[in-house]
Amino acid sequence: MAASALGLREIDAFYGDSHILQKVSFALGEGRLLGLLGRNGAGKSTCINVVVGLLPARGGTVEVFGTDITRLPPESIAARGVALVPQGRRVFKSLTVRENLLVAARPPGAGSRHAPWTAETVFGMFPRLAERRHQIAAHLSGGEQQMLAIGRALMANPRVLLMDEPSEGLAPQIVADVMATVRTLKESGLSIVLVEQNPRLVLDIADDIVILNSGRVAVVTTPAGLAREGIDLTQHLGVY
């Protein structure tokens, strides 16, 4: 079997004494989009934090294209081609739009097929950011900050893109724009983990679905499988 783009194996993670992730395993295939679902507090962001190195796992391994990254610091994981669009966007507020992009710039790794991302190509994708390139990021609207967070992640020319609730707190039209962007990125061949609470945003775009419940993997399936197997979403996700 070819190495997956991202693989978590039996991850155990704690905040202090509370055992948050319990033997979490899932794999993201190369060029695929994995929808990571779960209600608020299920442990989705904790998974993401383990992958990017912000929260060291107590047990288990994380691999990127077959390389073990479990014990690496965040800077080194970024250098291995993992980029994050964090929950709550977390753009660098006191930097300008352009500076937010430049500080994250990293040349593509060997063997990258996609044309490299630069500030100019990001601006081409998000013309609104181009207009505001010299503004301080704190002055952007929520939607613009989300675009900036996505652009910042792309500047690293990643091989694996993690997006933690990119639709959170945005107006429906902006959510549609963000989802269209995610689709474009998927079509460019990027391997993506898309974290969402709302399954409707994910079902028509994802190749694979993983549902977390109380820090455990409750379901591993595909959007078609989800419908076929009649999995009760309300049981895992609350009412939608």
Partner: peptide, 12 residues
């Protein structure tokens, strides 16, 4: 200075 953990995740 703005956001140390995210700066590290970005590769700084």
């Amino acid at each position: 200075v703005d956001d140390p953990p995210i700066a590290r995740v970005v590769g700084i």
